[in-house]
Computed example of a mutant assay.
Amino acid sequence: MIRVPCRAQFRTFSLIVNIALRRIHRQATQPNPINNLLMLSLPLTIPEWPFLKKQNSVYYKYWNNNTDEIIDYADDLYKNQKYIEVYENLNRLKYMNNPEILWRIARALYKLSCTPDLPSSISNLMILEAVDVVNHALSVGNDNANVHKWTAIILDCKYNMEGIKAKINGLETIRYHITKAVELDETQTALYHMLGKLAYDLASLNWFQRKLANVLFEEPPSGSYEVAYDCFLKAEQSTPGFYVGNLVMLGKSAIKLGRLQQAKYFLQLASHYIPMTEEDKKLKLEAKTLSHTLDELNKDILPKAEDELQ
């Protein structure tokens, strides 16, 4: 059987609740020294709160607009090969028309497009996005060496995607941007490597590709292994061991020029290079393979040369 409270019991309960509420109100309105000390210890403005100063916080990522801080943080992420984080931190600012931000976004997209086992469809979309970014960068920072440098790299990827005709047709455009970057900043070692790579690729065009170049250009772009070797050597002398790929290209250029001892020297250096990325590992393996091939070649050549001397 359910008991229903009487009216007197309701009045008693109501009185108790009212007394409790009055006590709560009185305590809230009276000064409390402990509460005052706590309030004084709290920061007065939100920007001083520690969680906003942490660069890995979502607040920092999406609401910090200090360009210098963002760029420094992005560069630290890039050094640690955290390319997707670089993209996330910079991409929201691409409409600020800051070329320093734009070429870094393109660089991150390029690195992401080189991710092992990444589907080519996604890699191609990243390069196409990077093309839009560098075009934007050129429109607001045509006097920036890094803008031209990364424009050359991104366009080379785009032309490779589009086929041999596009690649040959775009050679002069790539040469222009690399040359422009060198004019704006002669201290960048990587630019001389890029000039060497362009000269090497031009010298390596096969018969069909040369015929196609003759059709596309009144004066087809030209390159030589000698020029390529000199560019790679200049880069290496400027900053020794800056890139294992430069050592490999020095070895390959020396082979093309018949300088087998020089080729062996540079390929041995590349074979002992400490790889930092997947690309470095592949280039180191290529250097070891070429070096082994040279050893086998010397085994065949030296005995024959000794027989001829006798």
Results as ranks from 00 to 15, higher is better:
52 L>V: 02
36 N>F: 14
57 S>N: 03
53 K>E: 02
22 R>A: 15
66 N>L: 07
54 K>W: 03
51 F>C: 03
37 L>E: 09
58 V>W: 14
40 L>W: 02
67 T>S: 12
29 T>Y: 11
38 L>W: 04
60 Y>S: 01
22 R>W: 14
38 L>R: 04
25 H>D: 11
43 P>I: 06
47 P>F: 06
23 R>Q: 14
61 K>Q: 15
65 N>E: 13
61 K>P: 01
21 L>G: 06
33 P>A: 09
46 I>D: 05
27 Q>M: 13
40 L>S: 04
56 N>G: 07
38 L>H: 02
42 L>W: 02
64 N>C: 13
67 T>C: 10
45 T>N: 10
22 R>S: 15
39 M>R: 05
65 N>H: 12
30 Q>A: 15
40 L>T: 01
25 H>P: 00
65 N>W: 12
24 I>S: 09
65 N>D: 13
23 R>K: 13
50 P>N: 07
59 Y>M: 09
28 A>T: 07
41 S>W: 06
48 E>R: 03
23 R>S: 14
52 L>I: 03
38 L>D: 01
28 A>F: 12
47 P>S: 08
65 N>G: 04
58 V>T: 15
26 R>P: 00
53 K>V: 02
59 Y>F: 15
63 W>Y: 14
67 T>H: 08
22 R>P: 01
53 K>P: 00
31 P>V: 09
37 L>H: 01
66 N>G: 04
64 N>V: 07
66 N>Q: 12
57 S>L: 06
35 N>H: 05
63 W>S: 01
67 T>A: 13
49 W>H: 04
23 R>A: 15
55 Q>H: 08
60 Y>N: 00
65 N>Q: 12
50 P>R: 05
42 L>A: 08
37 L>I: 07
27 Q>H: 10
36 N>H: 11
59 Y>V: 06
42 L>Y: 02
56 N>K: 07
61 K>V: 13
62 Y>C: 02
40 L>R: 02
62 Y>S: 03
43 P>A: 09
23 R>E: 14
68 D>C: 11
52 L>E: 00
34 I>A: 12
27 Q>Y: 12
42 L>N: 01
35 N>I: 14
64 N>K: 05
66 N>C: 08
46 I>S: 04
49 W>M: 08
46 I>M: 10
52 L>R: 03
54 K>E: 07
32 N>H: 06
57 S>E: 03
51 F>P: 00
58 V>R: 12
21 L>M: 14
54 K>S: 05
57 S>T: 05
29 T>L: 15
33 P>F: 08
42 L>P: 00
47 P>M: 10
59 Y>D: 03
67 T>R: 13
52 L>Y: 04
34 I>F: 12
55 Q>R: 07
47 P>W: 06
64 N>P: 00
29 T>E: 14
55 Q>V: 05
47 P>L: 08
31 P>F: 08
53 K>R: 10
55 Q>N: 07
66 N>F: 04
30 Q>D: 10
67 T>K: 13
59 Y>Q: 05
47 P>V: 06
64 N>L: 07
43 P>K: 04
34 I>C: 06
35 N>D: 09
54 K>F: 06
48 E>Y: 04
61 K>W: 11
37 L>G: 01
27 Q>G: 06
30 Q>N: 11
41 S>D: 08
66 N>E: 12
46 I>R: 06
40 L>E: 08
50 P>Y: 04
21 L>F: 12
